[in-house]
Structures are given as C-alpha cells and as structure tokens.
Design a protein around this nucleic acid. Structure first.
Length: 326
DNA sequence: GGTATGCAAATAAGG
DNA sequence: CCCTTATTTGCATAC
C-alpha cells in the first residue's frame, strides 16, 4: 500500500490505528440537507452496456500539472444480459460467496464543476507492512474473545460495536443509532447490489454522479463491512437506500452518470516544494500561502489545508513516537 | 477484476 | 479569516 511516502520526515506508522486516545468524541451537529436533492436523477441516458472500457482524458494546466481527469466512462465490457433471479450463495456471516448477477449497468461521466482538481501521478514504492491486527473478519460474529488488538483508536466501527458483548446499552444502540438495523441493511445492501450485478466501484461512481452526497468504492466497501463509525453509517445508509431503490427501478433503463474528481492529488514535485516550504516555515501567513499557491499553481485553499494537515500529521506522528519503543 | 486498506485530502466544530 | 483537533472519506494500490 503505498501512497505518499514523499514525506521527507515522518515515517508515519499508521496513525489511524495507533493514535492514542484523545479527548471525548465531539458532538456532531446535524448536517444533512443535500439528501433531498438526490432525487434529481441524472438522466443522460444514451448508453447501453455497449461502451467498452474506460476512456480517460487528462487535463493539465500551464505547468503541465494534471488538474483533472475527464469523462471516463466505465462500463463493464462484459455484462451479460441474463435474467433476473439472482442467485446468491452466502456464508454464515451473510457474506456472499458467489452470485449470479444480472442487469444493466450505468456508466459514469463528468458533471458538476468545482475547483480544479489535480490528478495524481504518484510514484509508488513498495514497503512491507506493519501488519496491524484488525478486529473480526466477519461482522455478526460477536466475539467475547475477539482478540481485539491494541488499537487505541477512538471511535469504534459498527462492526466492532455490534460484535461487542455490549456492556452498557443492552441493545445495539449507539447514540440513538440502531446498529443492528444498520448491520442488517448493510448485509442486505450487498445482496441487492450484487443482484443488480453492480460492483462497489460502479455504485460509487453512480453515487458520485448524483446530486447528493457522493461516496467512493472505498466507502461502499467500508459500509458493507461495517468498517465505519456508527455516525458515518447512519449518514450513509439513507443515501445508499435511496440510490439502491432507484437503481433497481431504472435497472432496465440503462443510463449514464456523471462524476467529478473531488480530491486533490499533488504531484511529487508539488509535494516536494510544499515540504520545502514547510520546513522553512510550517505556519505561513495568508499572504505566503497565496504566494505558494500561485507558485505551484494550486488552489489557495488546497494549499492552506495542506499545511494544516501537514502540521497535524507531524504533531500526531511525533506524539506517537513517544509511545513507540524503538 | 473486484475488494480491502494505508495514507492523506477534506470537512466539521470550536476557538 | 484562519488555526487546531477530530473525523470523514477518497485515491492509490495491495490483496
């Protein structure tokens, strides 16, 4: 798994799982208003499952930086027609072992504007892995003995909570969130998704195409595995629920969606430059940030956030090191 | 070729 | 407006 590695310093041994417990979980003001807009189905139909693979285009800026990718239509080159009657083979955990899918799929394309996003070009060294032990491989299996790793992570995931013997709330509720219900839905979602013959990737692309909240394959994956916090699950559930039912409805229509790039990926050169600046001054003024942004040709806000995250990462890692017996 | 996951952008909330 | 801290979520890539 590699990714960045550009960090000149900071080895970063997986802050996600090793971060030490901090203060209490913050409140979580409600924030949902986009859902309603989800209704607007992105109809741009004109596709049949004929579009073959992926077609991508890269947008570059003056500096030759890739600022975005364009319409890359995705469509399962192979997509048999095959009737309904999805056959699913599940195991005890409700995990699908095999399926006989069917259905038409939709593809993705571009939509929405937004700030220019940069497309990566990351190198990718390889590195051995810390081999972190992560909890139960399967949800549903409550494990009174689950060798829950040292993970001092804060916010537990749904699967962890559901699997937990449960001490306080006899039920499976957390913050008024019915974990059991979410677990049930997640399981169901997977089954229905597969019945439609859709992959997590396709669902993510379709979701990204809608007006409402967008989620990636990663998110879908984590949701299905319940490898997310109850709050995230709670937020994601209605989105998936709505999308799924609509997808099932227009399952036979075939359509195309749009998608946008939503995450910046700095080029190695940019990261190098940013790090150089960071080493000289980790807390640049607004003016300086503006200049750096201009120099590197990135959105100012993106640069500002980069510095924030960089500081945070540095802080976290150094904090970690204190507890890491070398 | 789909899914799982590490790392890190992005976002939220409080100051 | 911008910072910090905590958390969410996507990209890239390992599996």
């Amino acid at each position: 798994m590699r990714g960045g590695d550009e960090q000149p310093r900071a080895p970063v041994p997986n802050p996600c799982l090793l971060v030490l417990c901090r203060s209490a979980p913050p409140p979580w003001g409600g924030q949902t208003q986009l859902l309603s807009s989800l209704a607007a189905a992105p109809v741009i139909a004109n596709t049949i499952s004929s579009v073959p693979g992926i077609t991508g285009q890269i947008l570059t800026n003056a500096q030759g930086q890739v600022i975005g990718t364009l319409p890359w239509v995705v469509n399962p080159p192979r997509l048999q027609e095959q009737a309904v009657t999805p056959q699913l083979l599940l195991n005890a955990q409700g995990q699908v072992i095999a399926t006989l899918a069917s259905g038409t799929i939709q593809a993705a394309a571009i939509k929405k504007s937004g700030p220019p996003r940069v497309q990566p070009i990351q190198p990718a060294p390889a590195l051995p892995q810390p081999a972190v032990v992560i909890a139960n491989p399967a949800p549903a299996a409550k494990a009174a003995s689950a060798p829950v790793p040292i993970t001092c992570s804060e916010t537990p995931t749904v699967s962890q909570l559901v699997a937990k013997p449960q001490a306080p709330n006899s039920g499976v509720e957390e913050d008024g969130i019915n974990l059991e219900e979410i677990r049930e839905f997640a399981k169901n979602f997977k089954i229905r998704r597969l019945s439609l013959g859709l992959t997590q990737t396709q669902v993510g692309q379709a979701l990204t195409a809608t007006e409402g909240p967008a989620y990636s394959q990663s998110a879908i994956c984590r949701f299905e595995k319940l490898d997310i916090t109850p709050k995230s699950a709670q937020k994601l559930k209605p989105v998936l629920e709505k999308w799924l039912s609509e997808a099932e409805l227009r399952n036979q229509e075939g359509q195309q969606n749009l998608m946008e790039f939503r995450r910046t990926s700095f080029t190695p050169q940019a990261i190098e430059a940013l790090n150089a600046h960071f080493e000289k001054n980790a807390l640049p003024t607004g003016q300086e940030i503006t200049e750096i942004a201009k120099e590197l040709n990135y959105d100012r806000e993106v640069v500002r956030v980069w510095f924030c995250n960089r500081r945070q990462t540095l802080k976290n890692t150094s904090k970690l090191n204190v507890f890491q017996i070398p």
